[in-house]
Design a protein around this nucleic acid. Structure first.
Lengths: 127, 127
DNA sequence: CAGTTCTAGTTACGAAACGTAACCTGGTCC
DNA sequence: GGACCAGGTTACGTTTCGTAACTAGAACTG
């Protein structure tokens, strides 16, 4: 895979989508279908109201998420994945599956790394 | 996919790996095989020295990247993907492919969104 | 023999992103 | 008339990030 224009732009796309919340939101929307803002906030554990707004705006702008506003009082706004978002969702799903599958290995690697980091220099690196 | 312990931790894993530079570095390492620090810096376009160091440390800690230091002067340090990193690489590759494939759609969606955003409220939403 | 060059970082500091908490809208309930 | 609802926005403090300067120690240069 060489440095074609497409994968140069890919870098930009990845920056856009590869942040903490975007993937999480896509995943939750994929699970839940159509969801209201506050329900989404409840499901995306740990997200702040501001970051959820910001993330959703970005995803909406990129055509990954559809935002439907019902002009009522109190307001009702529903979010769902667009077809485009659904295609990305599959990859996010794989990433989650991967995480589940390799969790133990990562934990082990971390433990090893941290143990080694605690050792001063003079510990012979006989690994 | 429910909220099992594994996919709860998956959230943590995603936060870890789903940042701008980690994916990019994994991708470049996958392409290049074994690479020295400065070569990597040249290939990962736009990364600062500090962020490359930080990113590599994180990936190394998680067992995704192997760091081999040759105690010479000037120092020589080589980085490569571990087998674990290689499995993740496949998903990153898919994400890049996706980006290339759907670039035009995303651009179009952005243009639409931005055009609409410029319109004041009184523009009837007859899309 | 003093000064420059090399790599792979680290440190200091300003800028940008992020999280927390308060406020806003305006119709309904008490 | 005050509290409440949902879905935000704004203000502000903290954490992260990017830029630039500095470090090591040997080798090469003048």
């Amino acid at each position: 895979m060489e440095h074609t224009p497409a994968n140069c732009r890919a870098r930009e796309m990845i920056s856009r989508v590869a942040d903490k919340w975007s993937m999480y939101v896509i995943h939750v929307l994929a699970e839940a279908g159509t969801v209201r803002f506050s329900e989404l906030r409840r499901r995306v554990d740990g997200v702040s109201q501001r970051m959820l707004t910001v993330t959703l705006r970005g995803l909406e702008r990129d055509g990954l998420v559809r935002r439907t506003m019902h002009p009522e009082v109190p307001p009702r706004v529903e979010y769902s994945l667009t077809p485009l978002g659904a295609t990305l969702r599959e990859i996010v799903g794989e990433l989650i599956t991967w995480s589940g599958a390799h969790l133990a290995e990562v934990d082990a690697a971390r433990a090893r790394y941290d143990a080694r980091a605690k050792q001063p220099q003079w510990a012979t690196s006989d690994m």
